[in-house]
Write a protein that binds this DNA or RNA. Structure first.
Lengths: 363, 363
DNA sequence: ACGAAGTAATAAACCGGTTTAGGGCCGATA
DNA sequence: TATCGGCCCTAAACCGGTTTATTACTTCGT
């Protein structure tokens, strides 16, 4: 409360030098002698001086902050483990450099554009992350026009001139399909995310090609919306088919969990009559009954890589490529060999040998 | 890209007036004539002028941003629906005033304090929210010392001189207990959050007093940690008791979901042999099998109220009290009358009349 | 011994706003 | 008519840093 924070002017006065000298000394720049520098640093330390972000931001014409705009409703955001991990990763990189993260959560695409405009117009951030990429997304162009450095999350290289940090979903989905095929499944369905999102279509494509690569024909595919309601509805549709699938690959954990519950509610035994896989490895996945087989991605590392990339971009550097690990499949109890219709074999006999068992292995 | 953003100096030059006049005109302050004001506004509009946050922040000695530091691991954060809703609420209030939210996600209490110090030292924010209050929390004192306006979330009034925005958990837990008692339960356990957190102890206290108010004796209570693993472990402990409870009130949905799965995995029928209630109304709760009876809180409204309060505090006003709705119990399928041990009555007969059914009612 | 090159430090401009002090100019009052 | 008080506007200081231009003083080379 009492007195205000000391400024470099205070430091300069006490040390008996000019403002400029203090600035040079504190930033390790030439133009000031060794012992004078020592003295200035000592005075700054004694006075408890810390740089004012506001002053610095104005003079270097940088906000020293980056932005993340999330267009989601609280319902879809609250159970999606992606952003929590992603933001954690971002922070680890930003904090090293004294940068901070400005978060905007908006509900619709309209206010999302408005949000970016405001961030750019007021100069609040030096760059932004772009997530939840849509096919034919207008935002990269908007941000280009606004002159705001941007790192696109999850767009495969070659989709445009934009700087992107990419983890390929494909290996995760492929591993799930291969796992199911190895267990003996031949009728494998997919509950996809919206065709509007690139991770919706890419996971769907990965599912289809993995199945054809195995010499099989893709089963039914229902396009849903990544929500619990959507997962439940899609599952009902699939189970109502004349030839219901023996396994369903869901595009995310939330739909998989809701779908699994729906199936159980209809009296379907899992994994006896139906195998289920998810995507995300939600913290809940291991604690469900049965525990969910799902694909895990290093989202924290992804966030960190994206942040390094954005900071490099802001500094005008190219930004090195960072190798990110591919998704891995975590096999749990929700997948097992299919049983032929009507076979009443007891559950434990129907459980196949699980190639990679549960989580300790992946710690 | 091309030219830089126009500044008030540009506007002044084009309009043929001084910088000061432009500032007066743009801020609606007296000191400039009506028609001159019109002209200045027109020029500013033509030039596409927008205020520079950096310049303004420096001259008014305000950051025009507020901070939220979250000390959680990605695992616990990713499935907790609280923060998504809370942040959404905050945004609705902040965006009206041109304020922004700086988010820090850190992993431990150590870096949390460091985080606050940095926010204060660099003057990056004008105030902060304090969540996840602990008993004997050191942070309010720290923020007091740092001179950072603070709004405490979820501390009942009277616990200190600090400005707080509060929703009482108690009605939610009480309603759950009363619901269970009405169904006929007499042995009701509780899986509590850590005694370290105020919402851990307050929910536990609410459970205990609701039961004694009903003329019963509280059943076993196990202190856990709000995590899925903790919920599963606690459930195992309770079911291993010589006289296991017929109902368990969990302090949050995550533990309830993991606990329900654990019980099902042990062959316990829910709600036939065991009723379960959660707290939060996670977006998943309605889609589980059985759907989870849980308490819902208006977290978005809470966030909005907290933001209004903090902005008022920053402006030096008192900040009016905002009435927030109490938690309401959403009754779903995970609660039913208890069955006496060994009774083999079919499930549908054991289901009691549900006083308030599912969600449409609460939309 | 003299000019060139380099070093240490200062004064001042600058970033983009806000705010204060003060100068003309007007009409109203004594 | 001289004085006072408002109104409209300008000039300049200010917020807290960074950065450039400039000056004073060394040191080096020949």
């Amino acid at each position: 409360m009492g007195t205000k924070r000391p400024t470099i002017t205070d430091v300069a006065r006490v040390a008996g030098v000019s403002k400029g000298a203090v600035s040079f000394a504190l930033n390790g720049k030439p133009g000031v002698g060794a012992q004078t520098r020592e003295r200035i640093l000592a005075v700054a330390h004694d006075l408890g001086w810390t740089p004012s972000l506001r002053g610095r931001a104005l003079s270097v014409s940088r906000a020293l902050a980056v932005g993340l705009v999330i267009a989601r409703t609280p319902e879809t955001l609250g159970v999606d483990p992606f952003f929590a991990s992603f933001i954690t990763g971002i922070e680890t990189a930003l904090s090293e450099r004294g940068y901070a993260l400005m978060l905007h959560v908006v509900s619709d695409a309209q206010s999302e554009h408005e949000s970016y405009r405001r961030l750019a117009a007021t100069g609040r951030v030096d760059g932004v992350f772009l997530t939840d990429m849509r096919v034919d997304d207008l935002r990269p162009q908007l941000l280009d026009d606004l002159g705001l450095p941007t790192v696109v999350i999850g767009l495969s290289p070659g989709h445009g001139p934009w700087s992107s940090v990419y983890i390929d979903d494909q290996p995760g989905i492929t591993a799930a399909v291969e796992h199911l095929v190895a267990l003996g499944h031949r009728n494998i369905s997919h509950v996809a995310g919206p065709a509007e999102f690139v991770h919706g279509v890419s996971r769907r494509a990965a599912w289809a090609s993995a199945i054809t690569d195995a010499g099989l024909t893709p089963g039914a595919c229902i396009t849903s919306d990544f929500s619990a309601q959507g997962g439940a509805d899609a599952t009902n549709q699939l189970l109502d088919l004349p030839e219901p699938p023996t396994a369903i690959v869901y595009a995310n954990d939330l739909m998989a969990i809701a779908g699994m519950s729906t199936a159980i509610g209809r009296g379907v035994d899992i994994p006896g009559q139906l195998s289920i896989t998810g995507f995300d490895d939600s913290p809940l996945a291991a604690y469900l009954q049965p525990a969910l087989t799902t694909a895990r991605t290093d989202v924290v590392g992804w966030g960190r890589a994206a942040a390094y990339r954005l900071l490099a971009l802001v500094d005008g550097e190219k930004g090195c490529e960072i190798d990110l690990p591919s998704p891995v499949l975590v096999v749990r109890a929700s997948t097992a060999p299919p049983c032929h219709q009507g076979t009443g074999a007891p559950l434990k006999d129907r459980r196949g040998p699980a190639p990679i068992r549960d989580r300790k292995k992946f710690r």
